[in-house]
Design a protein around this nucleic acid. Structure first.
Lengths: 215, 215
DNA sequence: GTCTATACCCGGATAGAC
DNA sequence: GTCTATCCGGGTATAGAC
């Protein structure tokens, strides 16, 4: 077996602690209000040490996004291999469900789209862009398959479907309802998942359809 | 007729210019990256003068939100009075369409939900909260009516429906697709509106339903 | 590589003359 | 009420000793 130098292991552990802290802070305060001092404090080191691992605040954010991308890719690839009998629509629905659960668990980081420095850092970031493209391809296959089977509206551009699914990762509806505090997490996930695929109208029972069409 | 003092007219005009500038900057850079210096420059006055009208950056943001609320309330009340024959669902759909168009036109301001100072300023802000509640009541009536008629899924909490509609005002799908630049604005509005009410599955033609249910 | 201390800058808010 | 000039907190990033 190949020996991993002890020093590198320590390095990895510390960097994991940093990225973990960034993730927590991105969730709780958002990128702009997150300070590098806080990250260092949460990760248990000084700010200067932190800057030896990551060269800028933008790089910290990118690392957190890489981490969540890896988690997502693991889920997607897992379902590819082990639930290959599921329909494309079911696969997509399962991924959305998982995304909503991660968000409810307070583990889904998001970044402000307005910050142009941050956006360009991400666009240059190989590790991040590779994973983003990889994920888009996986989902894209399921999307076109579901459209071919008529499970997703074939008139919609696949791009729009993809973005709509991505958008569930930062859907404001979930935190708003959770803040109200009068619903079970599972119900929230069910409802948002249902509206994503079936809309507010909902899956129309045959009876209601007849009545409405008659009107 | 009651005479409006000239000085007050000037005041109003200048404050309109300020709020207009804030709106533009909120759209283009977002709250965090918007600086009060920029607002003053765009409004054509010095920062110190600006602070005579609005006492803080948060108040500026609140004023912009009041403005967009007023625009929205005008649309809603207009449809109430002049399109009273439309179904509740049609009314809601029309409001969503209008919202999406405003967003595409680059006139829809949004605020970061993470900033707790900002959030508490808004919660204390009478003018803003009054309008928010008023709008929620108007939409709430249409929502329960549409649910009673079976046009909106009655199993969904009205709250969730309301939040889902509100969320269209800051839907990231629209700007993402617009950035791609290969679709007409009208199509984008149609598609997002369709997915909001009918979901990604889309309005299911009877034929497809039979085929799928048989499988 | 880790720390303490600090340079440097930017942005919100204000002082004080007019 | 408007301006110029300034304060001051806080944030990113770095210097330099260990």
């Amino acid at each position: 077996m190949s020996r991993v130098p002890f020093k590198e292991q320590v390095l990895r552990v510390r960097e994991d602690a940093i990225v973990e802290a960034v993730n927590r802070l991105l969730v709780s305060k958002g990128y702009d209000l997150m300070t590098v001092d806080e990250v260092a404090a949460e990760a248990g080191m000084s700010k200067a040490s932190l800057y030896k691992h990551f060269t800028s605040k933008e790089e910290l954010a990118a690392a957190a996004m890489v981490r969540v991308m890896d988690r997502t890719l693991a889920v997607v690839e897992g379902r590819r291999d082990q639930s290959a009998d599921a329909s494309a629509l079911e696969q997509l629905r399962a991924v959305v469900r998982w995304t909503l659960q991660v968000q409810l668990a307070g583990e889904m980081p998001t970044l402000p789209s307005h910050n142009s420095r941050l956006v360009s850092t991400l666009k240059e970031h190989r590790a991040y862009m590779d994973r983003l493209l990889q994920l888009s391809e996986f989902l894209g296959e399921w999307i076109t398959e579901a459209q071919a089977q008529g499970d997703i509206n074939p008139d919609l551009p696949p791009e729009l479907v993809l973005f709509t699914l991505f958008a569930r990762a930062c859907d404001p509806v979930l935190p708003l309802l959770k803040a109200g505090g009068q619903y079970q997490d599972d119900d929230l996930v069910d409802w948002v998942c249902a509206t994503t695929f079936s809309g507010l109208t909902g899956p129309v029972p045959a009876k209601a359809r007849r009545i409405r069409n008659a009107a």
